[in-house]
Amino acid sequence: MAEQQRFRAAPTLGGMRIAFGSETWAPSVDGVVTRLRATVTELRRAGHEVLLIVPDGAGVREHPDGVRVVELPSVSSRFVSGGRIFGLPWRGPVERALREFRPDLVHVLSPYILGRAVLAAAESLELPVVTSFHQDLATAARHAGLGLLSGPIWAYLRHQHGSSDRTLVTSQAMAELLPRHRIEPVELWPFGVDLERFHPRRRDEAVRRALLGDHDRNDVVALYVGRLAPEKGLRRLYPLARARGVRLVLAGDGPMRNQLVEDLADTDTLFTGWLAGDELADLYASADVFTFPSNTETLGFVLIEALASGLPVLAADSAPTAEILGGSSGGAVVAEHDWGRAPQLIRSLLTPSRQTVSRAARRRSLNWDWTVATEALVDIYRAVLQVDRLRAPAAS
């Protein structure tokens, strides 16, 4: 025990040392990556030190200045999650990195595969650990016709999150769900959005004309942003693809792309591939309505970015979606059986004018800010460290 006490860095009153373990860091339209990148940037700006433990080949060289990065060997297969990279759970390199970095606290996002090694190393070094829950795998399995896997999935998640001091969730809906599956204690990690980058002023008629293609300028550009994967409910968008007066634009990539291209070959659906940064922000602001067909999300970052861009939203009915929209007239929810009416619902949403619903969408986002969200996260870290310090004398 004395050796572990010597290892432990004394938490400072100012900046902390935070080690993050993440299953991915790829530069893609991914809510977990979006949140982590923004959080790391804000932590560095506030004077905290950061270590990232991520899979190799996952875009790790695109990170804020001063961030230390450890890449673990990874594997991928085009038959699994569309070729997504998975880091191997090698504990040795992780433990060496943590010993060298001497973090105050370890935060593991979605501790599934690579996260197992980070959790084991942190436990060996008796470091305080926070985990965060970002994907409702059990619900996704049920929607994929694999409901029998729900029980084993929750059992595995209980095991993974059970070794942490606190599990963070991204919405109040998840804060209510996890305790029902005996994952506790949980705490809300507030969300944020880059309100300067995602802004209605980026609306560009030249971009909109390019999105419309041969369509009439008065037609509606209906945008989807995200992974092209079965759990996203993308077949619900087929009525929009075939509706007169609507141009469906799908921004993203994933294992379902080829199937979508085949199914929608008789339509003029536009596939843009992955977009990011200012190009993505211009796309949001220049569309007319955002479509969000997934009801398996724990939050839905693209939904938040769309609202900040002044883009009215047509979204699948779910607890996290209702939490984000909050009754705003800048969005409407669609029951699972009602997506056949999506073209009519969009026209109703845009009445009396797009400008009116755009302003309502933007107003809904104005209280969401990454600085505020990260300050709340730091408060959670400090609370965990305080409990850990009180425990230490008793443990010795």
Rank of each mutant, 00 (worst) to 15 (best):
Glu3Met: 09
Gln4Leu: 14
Ala9Phe: 03
Ala10Arg: 15
Leu13Gly: 14
Gly15Arg: 00
Trp25Arg: 03
Ala26Asp: 01
Ala26Leu: 07
Gly31Pro: 05
Arg35His: 11
Thr39Arg: 08
Arg45Thr: 13
Ala46Pro: 00
Ala46Trp: 05
His48Asn: 01
Leu51Gly: 12
Ile53Met: 03
Val54Lys: 03
Pro55His: 01
Asp56Gln: 13
Gly57Pro: 08
Gly59Ser: 08
Asp65Trp: 03
Gly66Leu: 00
Val67Glu: 01
Val67Met: 02
Val67Asn: 09
Arg68Met: 07
Leu72Tyr: 00
Pro73Gln: 04
Ser76Glu: 05
Phe79Asp: 06
Leu88Trp: 01
Trp90Thr: 12
Ala97Trp: 08
Arg99Lys: 14
Glu100Ile: 07
Arg102His: 10
Pro103His: 02
Gly115Tyr: 06
Arg116Val: 15
Ala120Tyr: 07
Gln135Met: 11
Ala140Tyr: 07
His143Phe: 06
Ala144Ser: 10
Gly151Met: 12
Ala155Glu: 09
His161Thr: 02
His161Ser: 05
Asp165Glu: 08
Gln172Ala: 13
Leu178Arg: 05
Gly192Pro: 00
Arg202Trp: 10
Arg203Gln: 12
Val207Cys: 11
Arg209Lys: 11
Gly213Lys: 11
His215Gln: 08
Asp219Phe: 07
Asp219Trp: 12
Val220Pro: 14
Ala222Met: 08
Ala222Tyr: 05
Tyr224His: 13
Val225Asn: 10
Gly226Asp: 12
Arg227Met: 15
Arg227Lys: 15
Lys232Asp: 08
Arg235Lys: 12
Arg242Met: 04
Arg242Ala: 01
Leu248Phe: 14
Met256Pro: 07
Gln259Arg: 15
Glu262Gly: 12
Asp266Glu: 13
Asp278Thr: 15
Leu280Ala: 10
Leu280Thr: 10
Leu280Arg: 11
Asp288Trp: 07
Phe290Cys: 00
Thr296Glu: 05
Leu299Gln: 12
Ile304Ala: 00
Ala306Ser: 15
Leu307Thr: 03
Ser309Asp: 12
Leu314Ala: 06
Asp317Tyr: 12
Pro320Trp: 07
Thr321Phe: 01
Glu323Thr: 02
Ile324Val: 14
Trp339Asp: 13
Gln344Ala: 13
Arg347Trp: 06
Ser365Asp: 02
Leu366Asn: 10
Ala373Cys: 07
Ala376Trp: 05
Leu377Arg: 01
Ile380Phe: 03
Tyr381Lys: 01
Arg382His: 03
Ala392Cys: 00
Ala395Cys: 11
